[in-house]
Design a protein around this nucleic acid. Structure first.
Lengths: 374, 374
DNA sequence: CTGTTAGCGCTTTCAT
DNA sequence: ATGAAAGCGCTAACAG
């Protein structure tokens, strides 16, 4: 029987692994082992960014050596209690089933890590109660800052009020409504419409369509409708003829009906270019157009929106308006970290609202219209 | 100028919001306001599961009232320091781009919350360094327990050793290799092969195929090959003819070539049923078969594996072997929470390895073979 | 059944 | 440059 258990703690938790469970080493222990003071250990193991001085090189090396041998890992609970900060920022999003949110989290984690922060994420699963519960645990951990992607109608105002009172900075993600209470970052959807319209116009297109999945009543349909509206406005600034609206309720397969509708039009009436609410929709449309015998981009140009991975697939090579999630994450963190360092985020009483500009990714599905179509 | 800032803390962080930032209320403050002792406040606000007694009802009500008015939220850093526990469990997975992991996290969060724990997740993005860094922050927070989905080759043994020494229980997710060091939970892949083979055999099929994406050299290909091997073994126990192997490198569109191959076979040689490595592949195959003029399930039965949401789509109605992620999360938590409560997880010196059984979801893509084909 | 006391491990201030 | 001491907010012993 090799199992030997050393009970050192007052409330020793029962050993979780078969083996020897010991009390984790503390700075005090390291100080004893190295024959130096606790403060010296602290100075070496938790150096303040500015003051690098204070301990001689040999002492420093000794301390690091002992720490390594003992397997020292700083106890963040204790550190947090003493400093009042946790170096953790909390993120609450609706769901991790949306690729956008997982990308955002991954990028954010990267950029936060570079600044010494870690990120913890929770999902509201579209319910206010779950959001509240996660907000509460984050306030009580406490996190140093919060990034929230709220669904529109339900605001946990009391908890957010707590954040304000406690000085926990909050940044909203894509918030259309709460801008008054907190600063926010969002994609520049208007700019995306502008970009697509401009691109079509400059390629020479004059009859265009916008294809989107705005029929369901959910958040995603709302997004499609917003994108449609911005594209239509942008196009309206350039051309007399409003874009033809193609609407579906099925973001995955809706392209089939839309392609049928387009194929049924006389070439002289048919739009020469179609902007789509999402890349997913654009890809569905392109497949259906090919099946229907229409060539892309020879007969019809198509651009998507988002720049999902499938858009880059050589079999598609979708020209698209990229909404850069990495840029969004970077901006969110920049805004938040400014507030963490006490810089105000209001200008003239209004909270900053940062819009991240879209980028046009030109691949192979958009070109100038055929002369015959003009 | 309405802004008034109250500096109460020694190291007052600069105010993050325009407004009044105050020191958060503590139990001591509540005790003062309510005119009771701190212990009474503690007994009411952090009741021990067993001992519900200790404070009179009116005092209790008063404390709760004051706490609410003051916006009290318990400081978990302090609680953790005092108790040595954080009520947090850490999860490290490869990526959140895999639907499986996000589902797992969501289910796990649900079941952990019910037991008073919260979950924090990090991704290794398939690099050992990133895993190490997240492991380190989790050990130092510290988390009470850890669930790890490790990629095969790189183990951060030193850090895991730290977990053992500190008594932080670890549960592995789908680990094939580390079973010796830690208990693990995984899908019963062998059982899945068994289930599919059994289903085909009982429907009357005698010539079958297994279609998988095992050509790339990555983790996903490895999974496909394992599934193939288990199906082949299970089939071998029932029939003399080995299943025809259809292999692709493209999990998204590989069905096209496979369907072509199947369509080219003489009906008497053609398998009457195809099991697929994933639902994604099965769906790709079904679309391609339809295009090639083969009816499913009249000419050919198809079953998938996983039960992804698209499999339930009425346009597909895929019969599939469901790998229940919710069950996996439940088992992982059960195993971990047993260890949290000090129950050993070894039986006869070996760590437990829990296999979660698959379930056959019968929809519309599998049926008995046509008499003519027999 | 209430109150007093002594820490948890770390940071920070102040004195040497 | 180094050491001593106080305290973060909470919990868990023990005494009244």
């Amino acid at each position: 029987m090799m199992t030997r258990i050393i009970y050192l703690m007052k409330n020793t938790p029962a050993p979780a692994e078969t083996g020897t469970v010991t009390k984790p080493p503390t700075m005090t222990l390291i100080a004893r082992h190295a024959g130096v003071s606790r403060v010296a250990v602290h100075a070496v193991l938790s150096p303040r960014p500015g003051s690098n001085i204070g301990v001689s090189q040999e002492k420093r090396d000794l301390i690091l050596k002992v720490a390594r041998e003992l397997g020292y890992v700083r106890n963040e609970s204790a550190r947090s209690l003493a400093t009042g900060r946790t170096n953790t920022i909390g993120v609450i999003v609706q769901s991790l089933k949306t690729r956008f949110f997982t990308d955002f989290f991954t990028y954010l984690d990267e950029v936060c890590y570079a600044d010494g922060y870690s990120v913890t994420i929770s999902t509201s699963e579209f319910t206010s109660a779950r959001e509240a519960r996660h907000l509460r645990t984050m306030v009580s951990r406490p996190v140093d800052g919060l990034i929230l992607a709220q669904s529109s109608p339900w605001h946990n105002d009391d908890l957010l009020e707590q954040c304000s009172v406690r000085g926990i900075p909050v940044v909203l993600l894509g918030g259309d409504d709460l801008e008054l209470k907190f600063p926010s970052v969002a994609f520049d959807t208007a700019g995306a419409g502008e970009l697509a319209a401009d691109y079509f116009y400059r390629l020479g297109h004059r009859r265009v369509a916008f294809f989107h999945a705005g029929e369901a009543g959910d958040d995603s349909a709302r997004m499609h409708n917003v994108r449609h509206s911005f594209f239509a406005q942008a196009w309206g600034r350039r051309s007399l003829s409003a874009p033809l609206a193609l609407v579906t309720g099925d973001p995955a397969h809706g392209g089939i009906q839309a392609a049928a509708k387009l194929a049924a039009l006389a070439p002289a009436d048919r739009p020469t270019a179609v902007a789509c609410g999402t890349d997913e929709l654009a890809i569905s449309l392109i497949y259906a157009l090919r099946t229907a015998g229409l060539r892309v981009p020879e007969d019809l140009s198509v651009v998507g929106c988002d720049d999902i991975p499938a858009a880059a697939d050589p079999g598609i090579a979708l020209t698209t308006v990229k909404l850069p999630t990495d840029g969004l994450a970077r901006q969110a963190w920049q805004l938040l970290s400014r507030k963490l360092h006490g810089k105000p985020s209001t200008k003239g009483g209004k909270h900053s609202k940062i819009l991240v500009p879209p980028e046009l990714v030109a691949r192979a599905t958009a070109a100038s219209p055929p002369p015959a179509a003009l």
